[in-house]
């Protein structure tokens, strides 16, 4: 060792070498899988971020910072689509708080209009936009088909004027599917949002095929049945076949099952935890189950 190298020099040299090796030693972040929005061919990552309950933390600074960290990890992992609603309490303002701390340009902003009085729709949309702090929404959806006819007129007019990019409708837990289908057949929607998971598969029969036929993107809400499904499955060991689709947890199996359906554009699990958002995003990487394995997943979960 040369005599003129001090302990500090050695430490600096060691740190420099280690730093230079990190990019080589660390595994490259797997490419996040995307699917195109049929009406524009714009690619959307297969896993997004829901905010129902999880982001409704009011003015609690500690919880708001925690939500911002979830968003930071979400964007860092390649996620873009965040979904909310004026129904979700303070969630929109908490998203806005997070976006103000992060790179807002990465977000694909998906929100909803949820108000009975049609005339109040534009004011609610503007209040939502101000809460997010975005210049315009990428996607606005009529929440649970509430006053859908006048609200869709408003949203299509906004799209025509360039103040909105995409228009959609939502439902959850299998409600009003007959009417939902009628609206899908009659309106030139860009997106629909529905509930779909290994247990709730009613949409496979008509809604998902219709979305494919009509060229509509599909957002899937409540993938974990508000945590009930993951809690139920967590009591059982992860099957060996999970490794065939690069899953290390039941949450990833659930998500991979959903996003492997060819009609699905994006699933939006909600979480308050950074490790969970990373785990969720990892489900949008690697191999997805083919038809045979999808059938096996359904059969396996049905037996548990």
């Amino acid at each position: 060792m040369p005599q003129d190298l001090t302990r500090r020099d050695m430490l600096a040299l060691t740190a420099g070498v280690a730093g230079a090796l990190v990019p080589l030693a660390a595994p490259a972040q797997p490419r996040i899988l995307t699917r195109p929005i049929p009406s524009s061919r714009e690619a959307v990552p297969l896993v997004g971020l829901g905010t129902w309950i999880t982001f409704n933390v009011g003015n609690d600074k500690v919880a708001r910072d925690s939500s911002a960290e979830v968003m930071r990890a979400f964007f860092a992992g390649g996620g873009t689509l965040i979904d909310s609603s004026p129904m979700y309490g303070s969630s929109q303002k908490v998203i806005g708080y997070g976006l103000s701390k992060l790179d807002a340009a990465k977000v694909f902003s998906a929100d909803k209009v949820w108000i009975s009085a049609a005339a109040s729709g534009p004011a609610q949309i503007e209040a939502s936009r101000a809460a997010w702090g975005v210049p315009r929404f990428d996607l606005l959806q009529v929440h649970n088909l509430l006053s859908w006819e006048p609200h869709l007129k408003t949203l299509f007019a906004m799209k025509a004027m360039g103040s909105l990019r995409y228009v959609g409708i939502t439902t959850s837990e299998g409600r009003r599917h007959a009417e939902f289908e009628r609206v899908m057949r009659a309106q030139p929607l860009d997106f629909i949002q529905i509930t779909y998971n290994i247990i709730d598969r009613e949409v496979e029969a008509r809604i998902l095929p219709l979305a494919q036929e009509r060229g509509m993107a599909v957002i899937v809400n409540r993938p974990f049945q508000e945590g009930d499904l993951t809690r139920k499955l967590a009591r059982h060991p992860l099957p060996a076949w999970a490794a065939e689709i690069d899953c290390t947890s039941w949450a990833q199996v659930i998500l991979k099952f959903i996003i492997s359906h060819p009609a699905v554009t994006c699933a939006i699990p909600a979480t308050t935890r950074v490790d969970h958002v990373r785990e969720n995003l990892a489900a949008a990487t690697g191999r997805l189950p083919e038809a045979a394995l999808r059938a096996r997943i359904i059969a396996h979960v049905a037996k548990l």
């Binding site: 999880t54 009011g58 609690d60 409600r175 009003r176």
Partner: peptide, 27 residues
């Protein structure tokens, strides 16, 4: 609200227990 019978109590819960009780702390 249509199809009201399809709603459960959890559909109306807007926040987590942690947020609810933390609100009392801040209050």
């Amino acid at each position: 609200m249509s199809e009201w019978w399809t709603y459960s109590l959890s559909d109306f819960l807007l926040f987590s227990p942690r947020t609810y009780y933390r609100l009392f702390e801040l209050y």
